[in-house]
Design a protein around this nucleic acid. Structure first.
Lengths: 294, 294
DNA sequence: CCGTTTCTCTGACTAGAGTCAGAGAAATGG
DNA sequence: CCATTTCTCTGACTCTAGTCAGAGAAACGG
């Protein structure tokens, strides 16, 4: 606990001071944040607003300022004349590059005066912290399986199976779980979100009071090793219990060794095949602890 | 570099958001900082000002506010009627405890939702980062050997020698280096500072153009393992070269194994005894690279 | 004892970062 | 086509966190 407090103090002070020093530009920080959020491709005002959590009046003024400085152009959207599209000008792109440069310089300052060994330790520790703190920012929520995010996850999942299985993976050869099977009351789909992007999924198919089936467990490669799979599994079990299921079952392929390890570690017991899934080598089941009031 | 940038982003966001959430009190942050800085024992307004780097007018107003909230009392100093002494009231103490409690809660939040293994890794990584970043905040400066800070360092140094040497350490049995030997032009004393406290020292005795003597190398136990000794040694060598010395020498005790390792790693060559220091087992010398313009 | 310095306080001002209400224009739903 | 909703903008505020100049009282130095 004391370590955490000291860490907070030192890091916020040091990082804060450096941030102020390096990212100081002849404009308020809010304006710089907007400049950054616009991005190369341009962005709608409302997108910027929701991502940075700004008041519409406030953003309007910040944009006016950036416009006055000739860093961005603000135009009406061609389709919807209410929305405003913000785009970087040449000068805006340069300013953004300057911010990047300073941010790099800031990073370099942190590594300054360290010998190679210390530098290595610092970077390792930073990576560890970043990943562990990132894990806590991931949110899991029910998602409609036809949404863009859901389709992204499912496609990534299939692509990975195709890549890892010995003979590839063809969804048509596998037991289907159509989108209508993954919406209540037939089932549900959970998607893990990080920083506005989908980074994992997991689905359930209910069978009345019989065991619910767990399907489509996938975590983005960029966020593996953060025990996200474990969290997703817990959430699925909770959802299954809530829907009245007394057990969950699933089947998996021998190539998915991490998944198999996760199931075993999470109290899943290997059982004999309960279906004829072509790609499965292992079948697992877990009895869910009844709720207190059940 | 990318790791460092990602770390900065994630940590400032997460820590910043939590800070705002947990340390939010019905008063500006500045007032809370002052409340904290007052401490149990009370403090002078000018001390608070210099430590927090506040404008006198600004502090005056913050104190007025805290006084209005009955969290502190502000009185004239008995000896010097110009200075104002700030003390916590009972309510102020309670509010300060509340801040502590919230700060702890914040720390706990960071560890939330992690399994014991992840928690251990996070704490280790935090300790590493805190120490490495701390090391960069240490400043080394010339100090008068009669100052309080200098006496603290020298006494800590002697106490440690007494503790570690086989037969203890008695300054009277050792070659003397009096305070007058450690001020220019006879020599100098460097003190390492961190967070307003002295955390290490190192001294030089000049002998004209002959080898300068390095004495009194000490680093506070709380900051060991941060290569501070190495930095101190480099600073001493630089100072010796600046004073016209072409080499530095030193003697040391067999018990000070880290120091001996440091000297060897820093290019020091063991030489035969050049003095009759009673406590010494090893004598070292290093020829200083001439300056380019010499 | 007198000029200078130190310490605090007051008044006047600024910039950043928002919040809130309402107006106006465009899109949408029935 | 008309009411409602969505999106942006403007004006009027607020709070925080300062800065700066000057005044007044006390202490200090010679």
């Amino acid at each position: 606990m004391a370590t955490v407090r000291r860490f907070s103090r030192v890091v916020t002070q040091r990082l804060g001071a450096l941030n102020d020093e390096y990212l100081a530009r002849p404009r308020p920080l809010g304006a710089s944040r907007v400049l950054y959020e616009v991005g190369e491709a341009g962005a709608d005002a409302r997108t910027i607003r929701s991502r940075l959590g700004l008041d519409s009046g406030y953003l309007s003024r910040l944009l006016r300022r950036l416009e006055d400085e000739h860093l961005v152009t603000v135009e009406h959207d061609a389709d919807d004349h209410r929305v405003r599209v913000v785009r970087l000008t040449e000068a805006g792109r340069a300013e953004r590059a300057e911010l990047d440069r300073r941010s790099d310089e800031l990073a370099r300052t942190l590594l300054d005066h360290l010998d190679p060994d210390q530098r290595g330790r610092l970077i390792d520790a930073m990576a560890t912290i970043e990943r562990l703190l990132t894990a806590q920012l991931v949110e899991i929520a029910v998602e409609d399986p036809t949404s863009e995010a859901a389709r992204f996850c499912l496609q990534s999942y299939f692509a990975e199976l195709d890549d890892r299985f010995d003979d590839g993976f063809d969804p048509d050869m596998s037991i289907r779980a159509e989108t209508e099977d993954l919406v209540p009351p037939a089932g549900l789909l959970l998607v893990a979100w990080f920083d506005g992007h989908p980074v994992g999924c997991g689905a359930l198919k209910f069978h009345g009071r019989g065991p619910a089936e767990i399907k489509r467990m996938w975590v983005s490669p960029s966020l593996r090793g953060l025990a996200l799979g474990r969290r997703m599994l817990r959430e699925l079990e909770r959802a299954a219990a809530e829907a009245g299921a007394t057990a969950v079952r699933l089947e998996t392929n021998q190539r998915l060794v991490e998944a198999i390890g996760l199931y075993r570690a999470s109290g899943y017991r290997e059982v004999s095949a309960f279906n004829d899934e072509a790609y499965a080598h292992h079948w697992f089941e877990k009895v869910l602890a009844g709720r207190d009031d059940a």
